[in-house]
Design a protein around this nucleic acid. Structure first.
Length: 120
DNA sequence: GAAATGACTCAAC
DNA sequence: CGTTGAGCCATTT
């Protein structure tokens, strides 16, 4: 669906070694205030491909969201992030002030365009 | 087509 | 610090 494609398009922009929160991705995808949809979209990503760097999206607390439904993929996520040079402190959390992705202006421009489009 | 679900977030206590 | 409850809406049953 178009909604998912927007989310994936944003996630694909996250550079290696940095992370974004669900809420942040939702905002940039023109889905302000709807972070749940991001989680739902990522759940449906094909993890066997590297098309979408789903591992770089974490929750607002700075930790990898775990869920029984993920059947172990949450653990894989942590390993992949460490492989990119991201450090986990004790408690399995990431220092957001250090690794949070700061979107370039062009991405913000696109987000604004999507937002305006939504108001028609 | 109504009801349930969800990798979330924020504010309030 | 923690727990709770409301908000949210595309997808799935």
């Amino acid at each position: 669906m178009l909604t998912y494609e927007r989310i994936y398009a944003v996630v694909r922009q996250i550079p290696r070694g940095q992370v974004a929160t669900y809420g942040q991705v939702a905002d940039l995808a023109g889905l302000i205030g709807k972070p749940r949809l991001v989680g739902y979209a990522l759940y449906r990503v094909d993890m066997t491909t590297d098309d979408v760097p789903w591992q770089r999206v974490i929750n607002a607390k700075g930790e990898v969201s775990e869920s029984p439904r993920r059947n172990g993929s949450d653990y894989i996520q942590r390993v992949m992030l460490e492989d990119e040079g991201i450090e986990f402190n004790r408690g399995g959390r990431i220092d957001l002030s250090k690794y949070r992705w700061c979107p370039p202006d062009e991405v913000i421009e696109r987000a604004l365009a999507l937002f305006r489009e939504r108001l028609d």
